[in-house]
Write a protein that binds this DNA or RNA. Structure first.
Length: 217
DNA sequence: CAAGAGATCATCT
DNA sequence: GATGATCTCTTGA
């Protein structure tokens, strides 16, 4: 079932958790369906880790807009991040999608990306996969689905998400990017942790606003 | 393994 | 002019 705008018009911490287990869908010729396994919440102007803490700017206006709109921006000059605005208009908040697992057999499409799995490093979200261990490398070859998109920049690259999707609604299939509900995840399966890369955020750096499902290898 | 650096640019001061 | 809501590769123990 397609998630409608009302789904996103709720407290961001709740939306971030309920997105786990849902399916991020992208139409690129075929439809690629990916299970969402890691998210982060960015809540309000007081949240020093949030772009919105600097006030309303051209870049951050999406976060201040109505719920259910896509916020895509470039970090470190090369990586796109995928966020979805949450809560009411004028309350700046969003959920960052940090990791997904393609449901399709990725060998069937995206043949350009597949070679990266063979030789390249793994990296990715530190909680999901701990780096370059040979055993994990072998599993990556064996189960590429778990590794192609286990990081916020890796998933946007894999799904070809860039600035063209900025400010587009995700509660319709019109723009080729939408989210479908999945089996509800029991609260006991949801892990919490501090958000990544926000050491500058004062007291907010310690907030446990990152949510993920335990990796299954 | 852990730690560090490089890549590279839109955005904001 | 500085700075990242990152990833990958290299180095060195």
């Amino acid at each position: 079932m397609l998630l409608l705008q009302s789904f996103y018009n709720r407290p961001t911490l709740k939306v971030a958790q309920e997105l786990l287990g849902c399916f991020l869908c992208r139409r690129l010729g075929e439809i690629i369906r990916c299970k969402i396994v890691e998210t982060e919440a960015y809540c309000g102007s007081d949240d020093k880790a949030s772009h919105a803490s600097k006030g309303r700017t051209e870049r951050t206006q999406v976060m201040f807009g109505p719920p259910g709109y896509v916020y895509v921006y470039l970090v470190y000059g090369l990586h796109y991040m995928l966020n979805i605005a949450t809560e009411r208009k004028n309350y700046p908040a969003a959920v960052l999608i940090r990791a997904v697992e393609p449901v399709n057999d990725i060998q069937n499409f995206h043949q350009k990306e597949a070679p990266l799995l063979r030789g390249g490093g793994l990296g990715g979200s530190e909680v999901l996969i701990k780096t370059n261990q040979p055993t994990l490398r072998e599993k990556a070859v064996d189960k590429p689905n778990l590794f192609v998109a286990n990081g916020p920049a890796k998933l946007t690259k894999f799904l070809q998400i860039n600035k063209f999707l900025n400010n587009k609604p995700i509660f319709t299939k019109k723009h080729g990017l939408w989210i479908e509900s999945g089996e509800p995840v029991p609260p006991s399966q949801i892990m919490r942790a501090p958000r990544i890369g926000v050491d500058y955020a004062g007291e907010y750096k310690n907030k446990l606003w990152r949510f993920y499902l335990s990796p299954h290898l």
